[in-house]
Write a protein that binds this DNA or RNA. Structure first.
Lengths: 154, 154
DNA sequence: AATGAAAGTGTTTATCC
DNA sequence: GGATAAACACTTTCATT
């Protein structure tokens, strides 16, 4: 899964990556046309990108709102002294936490939570309050929805 | 694009969604086998899920680290009085910001940034410092990589 | 809404450059 | 590393229920 061999990010590979980021169900045939290659050549390049760990996987984006989670929040979590491990375990066991990062600074964890409504907040925060101080910010708007950065350097 | 008509989230649709979230390149034929339906039936269900806004799209997950962005950070941004609009515009124009949410509380924005190394931080933060107070947390580890929450209710 | 079968497309393998 | 072509697999359309 992890990168071992390197793979060049030439123009063709960037076209392939950009196309797959925009629509991961794009056919090899279409990718081949766009990259100016044959379908088997594109297949092989994708295989190498996967093996090198550049492509991690292919996922359908599902609307949490459409599933019934009308709200999202970002919670900063500062574990009480000696409680770091317990906090980490508690976070992992809360299925409404859809993402969590361990970070530098006073707040050891920053988590993204989905909620059916504001009433769901207590259910998430209460179990944490014996282990940590928390600070919650409800998301009003996705100012910048998840997007790809440019290719660095060249 | 946006949800207008409703669509039921029955067992078959959940199987389809789960399979597409795990691998969005899964063939209709395979999805059909798993859901116990024919391929055309699965095609039609996916079309409805897309139309209802449940499925937003299909994307390849690309490793930013493999592209040369070895670091990620989460930046909280509190605009100076009267500078909110300018801050929002500045954020949008920074391509290294891969996600940004407007939130309740003192920090109006919470952004996720990719960096080649710590030296890149100034290039992101300096342009903001005339418009806002910022607070930066470097990500040490993805404690919980992006994951789907359970289906709410029944 | 779903199926099955046929027609149309896309993918894979083998061979060659 | 890439191209071509034939064999194979998948997707779509359509008639039917």
């Amino acid at each position: 899964m992890t990168s071992v061999r390197k793979v060049s990010l030439d123009a063709a590979n960037r076209l392939i990556l950009d196309a797959l980021m925009a629509d991961s169900r794009t056919s090899l045939r279409t990718l081949a046309e766009q990259a100016g290659l044959s379908a088997p050549a594109v297949r092989e390049r994708i295989r190498q990108l996967e093996e090198a760990g550049v492509i991690l996987g292919y996922t359908a984006q599902v609307s949490w709102a459409a599933l019934g989670y009308g709200l999202e929040a970002i919670v900063r979590i500062e574990p009480l002294p000696g409680r770091l491990r317990e906090v980490e375990r508690a976070l992992r066991e809360m299925p409404q936490i859809v993402q969590c990062d361990a970070v530098t600074g006073d707040d050891c964890f920053i988590a993204r939570v989905v909620l059916r409504d504001v009433g769901d907040l207590d259910g998430v925060l209460d179990p944490l309050h014996v282990l940590a101080r928390t600070s919650t910010a409800v998301i009003k708007k996705a100012t910048i929805p998840l997007r790809a950065p440019p290719y660095p350097d060249g």
